[in-house]
């Protein structure tokens, strides 16, 4: 039964965890490491969720924490791995990926939670451990930086 429940939780939260990890790390290999670490932490702690929103917030927050841990690891300081098998199809997708690599990491998180997860600044603040005002400030800066980077690279369709 427990294994069955593992499958359900991985199916339900796995894509969300993977995408946020990739959004933060911009590396398939690192995102896979974080993906596994997040679900092992879930097994360690077996948190009881009060609601689907609580479950979602827990996984997002743990994913961000795992990404931070990875950044801090000695190995990750030395190298940024190659990602040769990313599934992007269009020039705009590849270009955006390259520009996101240049964006500060904390801005990547708020952009992802805002645009992909469709979360409000208050919800993002809870997940990132920040304040709604700080999130709004970060979103504003992130958008401004992305605008500059995209225009500079001539990614007109982005």
């Amino acid at each position: 039964m427990k294994v069955r429940r593992d499958e359900e939780i991985v199916a339900r939260q796995g894509p969300r965890v993977y995408r946020l990890a990739f959004a933060q790390l911009r590396s398939k290999a690192d995102a896979e490491d974080v993906f596994q670490e997040v679900f092992l932490r879930y097994v360690e702690k077996l948190p009881e969720f009060e609601s689907p929103e609580h479950e979602k917030a827990w996984f997002l927050r743990v994913t961000l924490n795992c990404c931070r841990s990875l950044w801090r690891s000695a190995w990750h300081k030395r190298s940024v791995p190659l990602d040769e098998n990313l599934p992007f199809e269009t020039r705009d997708q590849w270009g955006l990926h390259q520009e996101l690599l240049r964006l500060p990491k904390k801005y990547r998180a708020v952009l992802h939670l805002f645009y992909w997860e469709d979360m409000s600044t208050a919800e993002i603040a809870k997940v990132t451990g920040s304040t709604p005002a700080a999130v709004r400030k970060q979103l504003e800066r992130a958008r401004g930086m992305m605008k500059e980077l995209i225009e500079k690279e001539g990614l007109g369709n982005v």
Partner: peptide, 19 residues
Amino acid sequence: TYNSMNERLTPDNQLVQAT
């Protein structure tokens, strides 16, 4: 563009099974 990029990102079956 950002969301179309994310739609293409999913954990593959090998990763899910290993996890």
